[in-house]
Simulated assay, not measured.
Amino acid sequence: MTKEVIIEKIDEFLIDEFEVEAEELVPGASLKDSVGLDSLDFVDLVVAVESNFGVKLVGDDFANIVTLQDFYDLIERKLG
């Protein structure tokens, strides 16, 4: 799966399932502040990633995830 497809799928479920505005989905956006995800949303995000990409995420995976780009990179590494 290409990086572009990964980004497209992530953006799609953030818009559809988390009601994030498309214009907020820029690589440097903070997942907590700009995108507006709280701790409960992160649980739902893990479920969405597992169903969309078939990879498991654990709490430690999010230790260094600050921006949307960090999240894209995490999923790319998990799929890699």
Rank of each mutant, 00 (worst) to 15 (best):
G36K: 02
K9Q: 13
L14I: 14
L68W: 01
V46R: 06
M1C: 08
D73M: 07
F42P: 00
D33I: 15
S30G: 11
V35Q: 04
G54E: 05
V47I: 15
T67S: 10
V66Q: 05
L45F: 07
I75M: 05
S51N: 11
L37I: 13
I6M: 03
D11H: 11
E21M: 12
F71R: 01
D61I: 10
V26P: 00
V58L: 09
A29G: 09
G59R: 07
V47A: 11
D73Q: 08
L74P: 03
F13W: 08
I7L: 03
T2N: 13
D41P: 01
E4L: 11
I6D: 00
E23M: 12
K78D: 07
V47L: 11
A48Y: 00
V49R: 02
V49E: 01
I6R: 01
S30N: 12
E21F: 10
T2P: 08
D73P: 06
I6P: 00
D70E: 06
I15V: 15
D70M: 03
L79R: 05
F62W: 06
V55Y: 02
F13Y: 12
F62N: 03
T67Q: 01
K78C: 10
L79S: 07
V47C: 05
L37M: 12
D41A: 13
A63T: 15
V5M: 10
S34M: 09
A29Q: 08
A48G: 03
L57I: 15
F18P: 09
G59D: 14
D61R: 06
K9I: 15
G28E: 12
G28V: 11
A63C: 06
V55S: 02
E4R: 09
F53M: 03
F18R: 07
S39R: 07
E19A: 14
I65K: 00
K3Q: 12
F13A: 09
F71H: 01
G80V: 13
G28W: 00
D61S: 09
F13G: 07
M1G: 13
M1R: 07
E50C: 05
P27C: 04
I65Y: 03
E76I: 14
E21L: 13
L68A: 02
V55R: 02
E50S: 11
D60I: 10
L31Q: 05
A63G: 07
L74D: 02
A29K: 04
E19N: 14
G54P: 05
A48P: 02
Y72G: 04
E12R: 11
V35H: 04
L79F: 08
V58S: 10
D70S: 06
N64M: 09
E76W: 05
D33A: 12
V43W: 03
S34T: 15
N64K: 08
V58C: 06
K78R: 12
Y72N: 02
K3V: 15
A22C: 07
F42E: 09
D33F: 10
I7N: 02
V35G: 05
K32Q: 12
L45D: 04
V20Q: 02
R77H: 11
A63Y: 07
L68H: 03
T67I: 06
D44M: 10
V43I: 15
E8S: 14
L25V: 14
V43K: 03
K32N: 12
E24W: 10
G54C: 05
V43D: 04
T67W: 00
G36T: 07
V5P: 03
I15Q: 09
L68K: 00
E17T: 14
E4M: 08
D61K: 06
D70T: 11
N52A: 12
G59C: 02
V66H: 04
G80R: 08
A29L: 07
Q69F: 00
